[in-house]
Design a binder for these strands. Structure first.
Lengths: 351, 351
DNA sequence: CTGTTAGCGCCTTCAC
DNA sequence: GTGAAGGCGCTAACAG
């Protein structure tokens, strides 16, 4: 009968290195007060035995949990997955978050929470009680939900708000949505457009207002037409994009370019334009506010603002881990750079 | 000064319900030997206090960890995320796996592992030691890597192999790749094609062989042309798809239809065809073997086999959880249904 | 610098 | 049916 493959614990390492259990603990936690020689001996024992501390036991010991919890909006996320519309928000989050966590020997656990639900608080409390994460990453619109931020604050759990710029507690991490919208608008102005339509995002997202502001500022600065009816309300969805675009194109003097606050709405604009017999970009230029995979594959492919989702999530993870480690971390908002990717959907207006 | 928001533990619940700590444990674990009245009382206390057991403490107590570990291929996954080519494998996995886990009060932790690396074993051992998951979900090609399956087996950790059909240990969960390839081929035969090209997947994946078999069987059964040069090697990548397609189209008697083992290769086939001045589907029909978002947005959109990734992952999670619970679970391979989605890239051949 | 002593929150085993 | 010990692997606090 083969030897039972028992788990290697700190005790085994201690015995192997001929030191106390506590010394081993000090070594793996980079604690002070261990002679280099001993440290070395312990390290060798660790390698030899292939010892890896149990995350659960570590937590129990009263230290960190080495876990970060990332919270996304349930409905929107599941809807995105179900529809298979190619949004890669989650992938980019994982890319940035997981890799950063891995660097620090942390794990990121991804979870879905319904912002609107009456029991947001209960849902999140449960997750916190069960997991005891060292930090929480909030993505839009959670970062702007006071129920959530207050809960976290009261529990004393560090958190980061992605896509959220408000002052408040927690690390605010965003790209400059206002500047991005302005940059997109300037791109259109530079091409010679004067009537530029704008489709807003859901009001629930703070960044929607920021984008609108940026658009307005650029329009004004560029001396283009400022008219309220050039701004049509949307909520990021394809359907809302259809409605908004129809509305814009039905104006007596319709815009020659449209800036949409999401990829789905931009795609919708493209569809409406096509249905109306308009050539894109000849008759109508379109700019998308997400550079998700699909906008590269539409015909024409869309000029788009690219959000640094991976970078924002990585930053969030980094800040949270540093905060937990006790490192001094400034709480100035992090504003990460965006990209304007010019593709085939924008060109000078015909008239 | 506000009351310090201490964590609610099983002790508090016990006190609140006026029972022993142990009785509470019995209730939350559906243990036997608790009077309904008491059980009720405890449940109420739990609700009132908002108690949720700590996953870490549970593990330490010697029971389950309520964690499932999902292992993906590192390079391929990161490459997919970086390129933003719209593959939604990971999303579909999360959709199926996380939701199923949530049902059972489990968590799925997603991790990347390099199959080729010399230290696969070490990497995985570390993750296991740190997390102590109750089960592991292996995605291609990990499920076919004996180093990994043997390690898991020797450690006695239940695991599921997605996209893997081999006998071996662990739950085999797959779609019928062979049947799917046959179905796609039959679809083309039905349209009147006689020379059907096939681009294989990487040999490292067991399913690549299965697909080839299905194609061959259907070609033979359909009385179509069986020729070795109608089969071109690929490795799932766009680049390999370009090469394979050029090779097929350069044949003296080129195929009138191509079945590609991945979306990227199908897209590559489309590009080569276009570059060669061929009309798709007029001159060349193309079928993709992944129904990722982008193949819906190509022009024309691609007819494709849709893998039930979410369903497979959900099944994996379910089986693993049941196995841990001690429920009897058969170990017959699970074969889940696929779909053939007919779109604009397939039509009868012109000649 | 290093070892010893208490727990962390829960579950298992054994009494009652 | 229920409760009382004991310990899981680790770390914090305190000795030496």
């Amino acid at each position: 009968m083969p030897t039972r493959a028992r788990t290697v614990t700190i005790k085994h390492v201690a015995a192997e290195a001929g030191v106390s259990l506590q010394t081993v603990s000090r070594v793996i936690n980079d604690g002070p007060n261990v002679r280099d020689a001993v440290k070395e001996r312990v390290r060798e024992a660790i390698t030899r035995l292939g010892y890896v501390p149990s995350i659960a036991a570590r937590r129990m010991g009263g230290s960190r949990s080495y876990l970060l919890l990332a919270l996304n909006d349930r409905d929107r996320t599941i809807e995105g997955w179900r529809s298979g519309d190619g949004t890669d928000w989650v992938d980019q989050m994982l890319l940035g978050g997981m890799l950063e966590c891995a660097e620090h020997d942390y794990r990121m656990i991804f979870e879905l929470v319904d912002t609107h639900s009456a029991h947001v608080e209960r849902e999140i409390s449960s997750a916190l009680s069960a997991l005891h994460p060292d930090g929480v990453i909030l993505t839009p619109p959670h970062g702007d939900n006071p129920e959530i931020t207050e809960l976290l604050t009261s529990k004393g759990i560090p958190f980061a708000r992605i896509g959220s710029t408000g002052e408040g507690p927690g690390f605010a991490i965003s790209m400059d949505d206002s500047r991005a919208a302005a940059a997109a608008t300037e791109h259109l102005l530079g091409l010679g457009h004067h009537r530029i339509g704008f489709i807003t995002g859901s009001e629930e997202y703070a960044l929607s207002a920021a984008r609108l502001d940026g658009y307005r500022a650029a329009v004004r600065a560029g001396g283009a037409v400022e008219r309220p009816d050039l701004v049509a309300p949307g909520d990021f969805t394809f359907a809302s994009g259809l409605a908004a675009t129809r509305r814009l194109l039905a104006l007596p003097e319709p815009p020659t370019a449209i800036l949409a606050s999401s990829d789905q709405m931009a795609l919708a604009a493209l569809e409406v334009a096509r249905g109306a017999g308009l050539d894109v970009p000849g008759d109508l230029s379109i700019v998308s506010f997400d550079d998700t995979p699909i906008v590269k594959f539409s015909a024409p492919s869309l000029t788009a603002i690219r959000q640094p989702i991976a970078a924002m999530t990585a930053r969030a993870a980094e800040l949270l881990i540093r905060a937990t480690t006790g490192e001094a971390v400034g709480d100035e908002p992090s504003v990460l750079p965006f990209d304007l990717i010019v593709r085939g959907s924008t060109a000078p207006p015909r008239r």
